[in-house]
């Protein structure tokens, strides 16, 4: 399954990094603590968070994550979106809460 498939089925907004929509998705990770993601997320996972600053992209890139989903209507900071475009790692958005979107993503890729 690709990021594009997840976007389509979950009805996500694509804020940036659209060139990375063909990335393969292997799983998901949910956390707002950056060290937790750094230590425990795996390559190919979609990261669900409410953090919107640029360091999110540093971590997504270092960990080779597939994409980032911002929850509850959050939007990426300008420099976050810019780095997402440079790295081709999509930043996606939803108005749903972390709980809801995680449940849906889990059902989709379990």
């Amino acid at each position: 399954m690709t990021v594009a498939d997840v976007v389509k089925v979950l009805g996500l907004e694509v804020f940036s990094g659209a060139d990375g929509l063909d990335r393969d998705v292997t799983g998901g990770y949910v956390s707002d603590l950056l060290s937790d993601v750094m230590g425990n997320a795996d390559a190919g996972e979609i990261w669900i968070t409410l953090q919107t600053h640029k360091n999110v992209m540093a971590i997504a890139s270092l960990k080779d994550l597939a994409a980032v989903i911002l929850v509850s209507g959050h939007e990426p900071d300008d420099n976050t979106a810019q780095q997402s475009d440079e790295e081709n790692i999509p930043v996606l958005g939803t108005s749903k809460s972390a709980f809801e979107i995680t449940g849906k993503l889990y059902e989709l890729i379990k």
Binding site: S35, G39, N55
Partner: peptide, 16 residues
């Protein structure tokens, strides 16, 4: 508030 400072940094370094 940025999601850093959870007291996991040095332990993560040691683990890895």
């Amino acid at each position: 508030e940025m999601g850093f400072g959870a007291g996991m940094g040095l332990p993560n370094m040691k683990k890895n």
